[in-house]
Design a protein around this nucleic acid. Sequence first.
DNA 1: CTGAAAGCGCTTACAG
DNA 2: CTGAAAGCGCTTACAG
Lengths: 340, 340
Amino acid sequence: MKSVTMADVAKRANVSKSTVSQYLNKRYDYMGEKTKERIKEAIEELGYQPNIVARSLKQKSTKTIGVIVANILHNFSTEVSRAIEDVCHSSDFHTIICNADDDPAKEKKYIEMLRAKQVDGLIIFPTGNNRELYRKMLKEDYPVVFIDRPVPDIPVSSVMLNNEKASQLAVNHLMENGHKRIAMITASIKDNVTPRFERIEGYKKALLANDIPIREDLIVSIQPEQIEEALNEMFQSNPPEAVIAGNDFILKEILKFAKHHKVRIPKDLSIIGIDDVPYASFYTPAITAVAQPTFKMGKTAGELLLNKIQKKQSTDDRPDFRFEPTLMVRDSVKQGGRRK
Amino acid sequence: MKSVTMADVAKRANVSKSTVSQYLNKRYDYMGEKTKERIKEAIEELGYQPNIVARSLKQKSTKTIGVIVANILHNFSTEVSRAIEDVCHSSDFHTIICNADDDPAKEKKYIEMLRAKQVDGLIIFPTGNNRELYRKMLKEDYPVVFIDRPVPDIPVSSVMLNNEKASQLAVNHLMENGHKRIAMITASIKDNVTPRFERIEGYKKALLANDIPIREDLIVSIQPEQIEEALNEMFQSNPPEAVIAGNDFILKEILKFAKHHKVRIPKDLSIIGIDDVPYASFYTPAITAVAQPTFKMGKTAGELLLNKIQKKQSTDDRPDFRFEPTLMVRDSVKQGGRRK
DNA sequence: CTGAAAGCGCTTACAG
DNA sequence: CTGAAAGCGCTTACAG
């Protein structure tokens, strides 16, 4: 694997390395036409490709950003990452995506790895348990943007969904169709992941606004593996008319449960998912869902980060960026007027 | 963003840069205990992180590989990528994933970008239209492994599914349940993507082996957007009893079609998908599918590449690596004995 | 208009 | 057991 370097090109074109470098960086200002021509030919003949590693070392910029998603298996993460990539691509930045797998230790490892690789900035779906590290990056003025979740006391704004509104949309739609006994199921809140709290909060507020008392036995926050059991219990003691799935994993578990226990949707149980899933429209029944504007959110996060990188300002004057959810009405909610 | 360099550590610990470097690379052979101790402290006090870019430049290895998937939206790509990442991770290699979006021009761009970034090797889901580039890499002895598809005349083995077998499993299962009029739908074969041909070939062979004549009007190869129309036509003139979906996109379109036209599955139409999809088990009906051993395939590709990188041998003595598919029997095929 | 020289932050024989 | 020096492949003032 012999590699052609700038020196080889320079020799062949009978110029100095400096001139080749100028050429590559399109600083043609004072360059003679024939010189350009010679360099161009030499590059082609030798099949020369510049070594970005060397350039980065000197320029102290890799034109690369890192994205650390909390869990790549969430649909939301994939879509947001795509949007970030698009934005970066059009500014000639590359993107490296890493998956923290909901594990703060992995998150830390990736942050360190990416920084060692000298990426110019980081977009993080924070697991929430690396506050020291975040603070250190801030102190060093390193460009960071959070997404999906806030990190209290760290003055970096986060690009997020209006989570309370998401639950409200779901509750209201269910109530308009006559449901009152509405269960809310989210992933475990032991992990301290804010959107889950906010979604539960929104659910509670929406119920209260409709004069429905809150029943704690209809609120379940639990790991996906335990959902089947929890639902079983709930259905035996106190079956809900409708259920809101706090995210795509939860939705999947509820659908599995319904299938195994022959619970008919929406006849026996209405369902609304928060997060739209790829199969929602062609599932039977098609799944009513509250969608996040994933593309806009990713785009915003990318733009924020690129701004910070270019302006070298790491603190935000603006508070969090909140985006509005949209209700996608489909067929998993039993239709009906407002019942008694 | 002041950065701490090795020189700073050396000064603080009162040793030379060389010694710090030895320390970092764990070449402790002759290092005094107190020296080690001093360096360790200096590193901690300064919060020093080595600059991998500088190291890579000198070592001519970035300990990073690139993966270029044909289309990240295929479930297969995501799962294979995860497996590759796992393998690389345990050998201390990093992975950069890029999405060619089924576009040879993008594929080319990413290959060049990744090579400029000095990745140590590449795993490619080849679009098939960059043969010159592949050949060039081979000539330069650059480590490459193909996956999912072969590239004729390029002596690099590819990690692939036994595609003919996949179709055979599907056809046989359908026939055992009494179906004879079996349609085969794949994505367009204009793109020259070999697995599609092989799957069609396997389908034909399996029919012939069962003494069923091949009817060209039951074989459709077309872009996903046009599937609805093609199915419409097929169902009006000549409705099949069963259909095999050539990949996950096609399956999705068939399911949408069935939903829109109130075609009941499996009562009116049996379906088998090639490629297992995440929602297969909890879809209604659960989707019978032919699964690829994605994890094993990704692992193999990763290991092959790491071997090449370490041994610096780029040509393969072995021909292609073929993996066997598995039939996942679920509920989308109408049950029945072998009918007349 | 172009070149010589220094330097980015590391690693690695080699000398002592 | 440790240090001085060269070098990886670029870029960038600066000189001419």
